[in-house]
């Protein structure tokens, strides 16, 4: 591959990223970082968890994104009585023309490219765990049969803050499978005006499909092609180990308040996210700035507090901030 080809790929990557973002921005006002984060998750073969109080447009954002992508979209509204089979699908008895009965697999809503798991923490942990296999192996096993999901596959989950009524915290294993956790905050005043102007008209803007599944897969290949130098990777590793209370590089706050730190999957997410950010900045090298920029959404849900941390109501964001502040660069 020549330099020119690489430049073209980078340019194409940036262009495609931009047109999707612009398309989503037609509907979603503000929340540029949230859109970037979701797209990063898509390009990193990851899943994104959106957290925020009801009414901030989390569902709308995901719907808009899926509308901009030429992919199969499926929405699952998680409720306390939702069962795993309601997600994965189940074998049902079918009778053919000869009157013979046989079991036939009826795919659930998970068989799509983009899954909106709305209010995921309103379902029981058992149902929440039904997503584990699909999120990691991109397969679904029902009975004795495993079914492969179509690629690209990614889950965009929304959840209400844990303090709200009728919520179940996500299992640690499932949390770790999310590439990023993005906190959706209230819009600014100007953004609020724009939202009102757009949504109170007779016709709301709708996104156009601007990116196909193949193009997303190609963009993913571009991302992973960028080499990262060892010193930068060491920095990412140090950040991850700084979240481990038993490690020698653990931060003081980590030793005091953290039960478990980020897994290797967290380090992978740091590097992949940094690579995407480097590409978006028209660079072919990854910098520590890229790592730092994605560290917060990548690590905040992977830092599990101990009893003391819970009792003190320590925010994991403050721990990650302290780690970013105190971890020495290359």
């Amino acid at each position: 591959m020549s330099t020119t080809q690489i430049d073209e790929r980078i340019e194409r990557f940036q262009h495609q990223f931009k047109i999707v973002k612009d398309e989503v921005a037609k509907v979603i006002v503000g929340a540029g970082d949230i859109i970037d984060g979701i797209l990063m998750g898509v390009l990193a073969r990851g899943h994104v968890l959106l957290e925020g109080v009801p009414g901030l447009g989390k569902t709308k954002l995901v719907q808009t994104l899926s509308g901009a992508l030429h992919l199969k979209f499926s929405r699952i509204q998680f409720t306390p009585d939702l069962m795993p089979a309601d997600i994965t699908g189940t074998n049902v008895v079918q009778e053919d023309g000869h009157g013979e009965r046989h079991l036939e697999f009826q795919p659930g809503p998970i068989f799509a490219n983009v899954i909106l798991a709305d209010e995921i923490n309103r379902a029981t942990p058992k149902t929440q765990s039904a997503l584990l296999e699909a999120m990691q192996e991109k397969t679904v096993t029902v009975g004795k049969e495993s079914y492969r999901l179509d690629l690209p596959f990614f889950v965009l989950a929304t959840q209400n803050p844990l303090e709200m009524e009728g919520t179940y915290p996500l299992p640690e294993a499932q949390l770790d499978r999310f590439f990023m956790k993005l906190n959706v905050d209230y819009p600014t005043v100007s953004s609020m005006h724009t939202i009102l102007n757009r949504t109170t008209k007779v016709r709301e803007p709708e996104p156009q499909q601007v990116l196909t599944g193949d193009e997303i897969l190609a963009m993913r290949e571009t991302v992973v092609a960028i080499p990262i130098a060892r010193p930068i990777q060491e920095y990412a590793v140090r950040l991850v180990f700084a979240t481990h209370p038993g490690h020698e590089e653990a931060h003081a706050l980590t030793r005091q308040y953290v039960r478990y730190g980020a897994s290797p999957r967290g380090a992978q997410a740091l590097v992949i996210g940094a690579k995407i950010r480097a590409l978006l900045d028209n660079r072919v090298h990854v910098s520590t700035g890229d790592v730092r920029a994605v560290a917060m959404p990548v690590l905040r849900h992977r830092v599990l507090l101990n009893f003391e941390g819970e009792a003190e109501r320590i925010d994991t964001d403050s721990i990650v901030e302290a780690i970013l502040r105190d971890t020495k660069g290359p």
């Binding site: 010193p231 930068i232 090298h285 910098s287 700035g289």
Partner: peptide, 9 residues
């Protein structure tokens, strides 16, 4: 942005 460091490495 660590360009020289990466290139040197």
């Amino acid at each position: 942005d660590d360009e020289v460091l990466s290139a040197w490495w």
